[in-house]
Amino acid sequence: MKKFIVIMLLIAAPASAEKLSLDAVSSYFNAMTSAEAAFIQNSDDGNQSSGRMYIKRPGRIRFEYDPPNLALVVVGGGQVAVFDPKANSEPTRFPLNQTPLSLVLERNVDLARRDMVVAHTSDGPRTLITLQDPDRPEYGFIQLVFTDNPVQLHQWIVDDNSGSKTQIVLGDWTQGHKMPSILFNIQAEMQRRAN
């Protein structure tokens, strides 16, 4: 009888999830044309911010922060612009290819063929993939955390190689709706703020 109960418990227990393949994750990004999600950002210093993220692939992403933060990050045209509402100056700008985020905003993401995956593990229900540009390791790395069924990006952690880490947790995903390109136009945002 004990043996029967053990067998029934094993049959009834959910199978542990296998980690997602690199091809499955690449396909997930390549199928994404546009997406919107709520985010919560946690910094090493204990600060927490929230807001909405907008993605229009390839190469464009926007982070609108909720009050009291009111910061804005716009990625478009190969540039990253960080708008600080407390400063009366132009945004801080730098090339997208100097950030680990560029690896998932590429036109054709193919993680299995690029020499950028430095770790690929699973902690049960989640798959964790750590990416670093081998040509620019000094720019840090990004760890992506995915859930399965359906495949979805749940969070990422950026390490800028200076000892600072930022975690973004995503929720309330919607995908595939039309999104105006002006959301990702840095010059247009600068003009709007100047008026």
Rank of each mutant, 00 (worst) to 15 (best):
P91M: 05
A13G: 03
V104Y: 05
A38H: 08
I186P: 00
E64D: 13
R136S: 09
V117I: 04
N30F: 00
F4P: 00
L70R: 10
N97M: 14
S181T: 15
R107A: 15
V74F: 10
S16V: 15
H154R: 07
D133K: 02
N149D: 12
G78M: 13
L153T: 04
A119E: 08
E36M: 12
P134I: 06
K165N: 09
V109I: 02
I55H: 09
P58D: 04
Q187S: 13
L72G: 07
A37V: 06
A81R: 02
F63K: 06
P68F: 15
L96H: 10
A194I: 10
L183A: 09
N88V: 03
G176M: 04
H154K: 14
K56W: 11
K19N: 10
M179V: 15
S49F: 10
E138Q: 13
M8W: 07
G176A: 06
L144W: 01
P180R: 12
E18K: 10
R57W: 09
K86M: 13
D115R: 15
A119Q: 10
P95E: 13
T147C: 01
N47V: 07
Q187E: 12
R126V: 08
I186L: 07
F141Y: 06
D123Y: 01
G171T: 13
Q187A: 06
N195D: 08
F83K: 09
A31K: 14
F4H: 07
I157C: 04
N195R: 14
P67D: 12
E90H: 13
L10G: 02
S43Y: 11
F184G: 10
Q41W: 09
Q167A: 10
L20M: 10
S49W: 06
L103W: 00
S122F: 04
V117S: 00
S16A: 14
V73S: 07
I61K: 06
T147Q: 06
K86C: 07
S162V: 08
